[in-house]
């Protein structure tokens, strides 16, 4: 069953169109990825889903409801939470305060302690750094804090924008493992990545964007063996 449906989604920034009539479906409980080069429209698509970027035309259907004109706080309340590109933690607040803000909305506040324990379970490092300013964390810890903060809202859908950006290979493996176990608890994950290999290994279904338009879509195991994908995104030669 599809949880999110994008119908002819268009995003324009003034005269520049970032996303052109995109159609996509995200299955309930899946990990889905959007691939593409810089400026392909991946982040704009996620921004629309998070209610942060206004949709120019087209519709977003979430759980059977039209949420096209929802704003960010409404999307969070509805269960769709974005861990944005560049983490966007509150650098002058502590790790604990960042996590507390993640549970700002009504339904998340009720299960705060429980959820905090769950997040500390995924990221034990955050428990140690609890009272440290978020701005003083290492890159990997910041990414963990950003994912942790998003989880604090008890989302049904977790949107991850470039979670591997700027991280050491060892940390990337660790983060990937955690994304998988988060998904196992029933949370639908939509991941945007430039690291195509990582994204395709994690996800079951993938969309490939090129300059705002859908270039290719399919199950990730097929995409991994697609000649075009191998050449353009995996740095390999055609088999």
């Amino acid at each position: 069953m599809s949880l999110i449906k994008l119908e002819n989604l268009c995003v324009d920034y003034g005269p520049i169109s970032a996303v052109k009539t995109l159609n996509a479906e995200i299955m309930n409980g899946s990990i889905t990825c959007i691939l593409g080069a810089n400026g392909a429209g991946k982040s704009s698509t996620l921004g629309c889903l998070a209610g942060l970027v206004p949709v120019s035309s087209g519709r977003i259907i979430y759980d059977g409801q039209d949420v096209t004109s929802h704003q960010a706080h409404q999307m969070v309340s509805a269960g769709v939470t974005l861990a944005p590109e560049g983490r966007r933690l509150f650098p002058g607040l502590t790790v604990y305060e960042n996590l507390r803000l993640g549970a700002y909305t009504g339904h998340a506040r009720e299960g705060f302690q429980e959820q905090l324990e769950a997040v500390f379970g995924y990221f034990p490092r955050l428990r140690e750094r609890r009272d440290q300013l978020a701005g003083s964390l290492s890159g990997g810890e910041q990414q963990m804090c950003a994912i942790g903060r998003a989880l604090m809202s008890r989302p049904r859908v977790l949107l991850l924008d470039e979670p591997s950006l700027g991280l050491a290979p060892k940390i990337i493996v660790e983060v990937a493992k955690i994304i998988r176990s988060i998904n196992k608890t029933g949370i639908t994950v939509l991941i945007v990545e430039q690291n195509a290999k990582l994204a395709l290994q994690l996800s079951s279904y993938g969309y490939v964007l090129e300059t705002g338009s859908l270039a290719l879509e399919g199950p990730c195991k097929d995409l991994l063996h697609d000649d075009h994908i191998r050449q353009a995104y995996l740095g390999g030669t055609a088999a």
Binding site: Q71, F90, L101
Partner: peptide, 20 residues
């Protein structure tokens, strides 16, 4: 109070936490 400090630091990130 926490929400105020969050909005002062990064309004867009604050909105992503569900703050109006």
């Amino acid at each position: 109070g926490l929400a105020m400090r969050a909005v002062a630091q990064d309004p867009a990130a604050a909105a992503l936490q569900g703050i109006r």
